[in-house]
Amino acid sequence: KAKLLVLLYAFVATDADTICIGYHANNSTDTVDTILEKNVAVTHSVNLLEDSHNGKLCKLKGIAPLQLGKCNITGWLLGNPECDSLLPARSWSYIVETPNSENGACYPGDLIDYEELREQLSSVSSLERFEIFPKESSWPNHTFNGVTVSCSHRGKSSFYRNLLWLTKKGDSYPKLTNSYVNNKGKEVLVLWGVHHPSSSDEQQSLYSNGNAYVSVASSNYNRRFTPEIAARPKVRDQHGRMNYYWTLLEPGDTIIFEATGNLIAPWYAFALSRGFESGIITSNASMHECNTKCQTPQGAINSNLPFQNIHPVTIGECPKYVRSTKLRMVTGLRNIPSIQYRGLFGAIAGFIEGGWTGMIDGWYGYHHQNEQGSGYAADQKSTQNAINGITNKVNSVIEKMNTQFTAVGKEFNNLEKRMENLNKKVDDGFLDIWTYNAELLVLLENERTLDFHDLNVKNLYEKVKSQLKNNAKEIGNGCFEFYHKCDNECMESVRNGTYDYPKYSEESKLNR
């Protein structure tokens, strides 16, 4: 008799109507990190870190770059004969040098303040090359056809396309004075040089004057150069050297050249137009028929994500570079809930034993079982409120962090190594801060989002509990077992918050 009662009780308990509160689960393989956990499985997430590029040089917003090819900045601007293909260059979106560009200054020497000139050019998007001192009329008392084997072109001695090597005419090199007034309405880049012979005999042979000088002056520039005559090792078949100089001439300003020898005179100059998204990159990537809004030396990035880990040097509207390998923000729920887990921000989770793959029309909802059958029903209101809140948060985070910009490298010469090392340390410090901030932001927001979901499920549970009161009992896994019969209409009233407690209280009292 006792065995019969136990079996009867078990049958009745199993047959009781139930309603459970749960949440969506799926077959997603997404994982995120939080402050407290690593690799948390979630139903949905968004990636904030771009880690792919196309490996190509592309047009930037429809404008092609200027590819210097086998030449570098120095060779292009001075007019190395091997860089003749660059003479027609007028406009570009950015400038590309190759790491091993070999054609710079063909006659050995240095372009002074080269690093600063590169910085200036990094904001130039177009130029006009014009004859600042016409070759045939500007130097009537001097020979202007100086050439050298060091600047050979097609097997013949030649010289820079933008400079003139002035030497004596006959047996004399009379003092020369020439000036140019900038009437271009924009900055003009003027380049010139000073020749330093290897011996007094060479000085006399070329310029006749043993104590020659070169003077260059404008409103913002004033220097006097004296040739340094000295024996030097042979470089590119030359014992002599040429140093090259430049200045930016403001609109309306005048530049005056005065010399008694050794002047490498300007022939062509450049009127410059600035462009905020221009820059110089060093890259071996090849040019393709493609378009982008962000270019790196590795390749083009076409992404609206706020961060990238491809390269710190970028041109155009680019994500911020960070050292992170993963920045994924959760938008959905835990896919593998932890039992009795309390989140960092106070939300209680884990009283549900598992997510439901059968509930596909919402994030949170119900599963019921009664004599009429069983089924899932999503709670659309709480789901939609959660979707709206999380979507707004993700968009806000992306908008705040998605300050796209150009980031170019800084140039230092060989004598500025300590400054370069200090600059690298400062840049590394800023990069570490950006990386830390980005990672911390994602970790915190992921923790908040998961706790937010847990709290929403808990609130749904409490909503049902407050309606049923003692007409049902909690069975410990997020479910309630009714003390009365609850048909589909009754189940719907529980879900929509209109459950009639008094209607079922007498039946429940008897069954309790």
Rank of each mutant, 00 (worst) to 15 (best):
V214N: 04
T143K: 15
L263P: 01
K56S: 00
V214F: 12
W165L: 05
E136W: 00
N178E: 02
N182E: 08
Y213A: 10
A10V: 15
N80P: 00
L48V: 05
P81F: 03
A269N: 05
N103H: 15
S172M: 07
K184M: 11
R236M: 14
Y180L: 01
N211T: 03
I264A: 12
L191W: 06
Y160M: 03
L60R: 03
V235Q: 11
V235Y: 05
D171M: 09
Y173N: 08
A271S: 15
R274P: 10
N27F: 05
E116T: 13
W165E: 05
I95V: 15
N80D: 06
V96F: 03
G240F: 05
A217H: 14
G79Y: 06
K168M: 10
S123A: 14
G69D: 13
D51W: 08
G146F: 08
T247Y: 13
D17S: 03
H196L: 05
E115G: 12
E277L: 13
L248M: 15
Y94P: 05
A212M: 04
E115W: 08
S85N: 10
V32L: 15
G155L: 02
F257E: 02
S85V: 12
L127Q: 08
S91P: 11
S218H: 11
I132V: 11
E102L: 12
L77W: 04
H239S: 10
I112Q: 14
L272N: 00
H195Q: 11
I132H: 05
E102W: 03
K1P: 08
N178A: 14
F130T: 07
G69P: 09
S215K: 04
Q203E: 13
T98S: 12
Y114W: 03
S172H: 05
L68T: 02
L4G: 01
A13C: 14
S93P: 04
S126M: 06
T43D: 12
S158C: 04
S150Y: 05
S52E: 15
E119L: 03
S28W: 03
C83H: 01
P251L: 01
H53E: 05
A271V: 15
C58I: 10
Y221I: 14
I255S: 01
D15E: 13
N222P: 00
P99F: 11
N103V: 09
K56H: 11
G22V: 06
F130M: 08
S93D: 10
T98W: 01
V149F: 15
D110I: 12
G170C: 02
K168P: 00
I63L: 12
W139R: 00
Y114S: 15
K168Y: 00
L191F: 12
I112P: 00
I255T: 00
L111Y: 00
E37V: 06
F133R: 02
R129E: 08
P140A: 09
Y207I: 03
P140T: 09
I35T: 14
T98F: 03
G79N: 06
V12C: 09
G185L: 13
S85R: 10
L4I: 14
K175I: 13
Y207N: 05
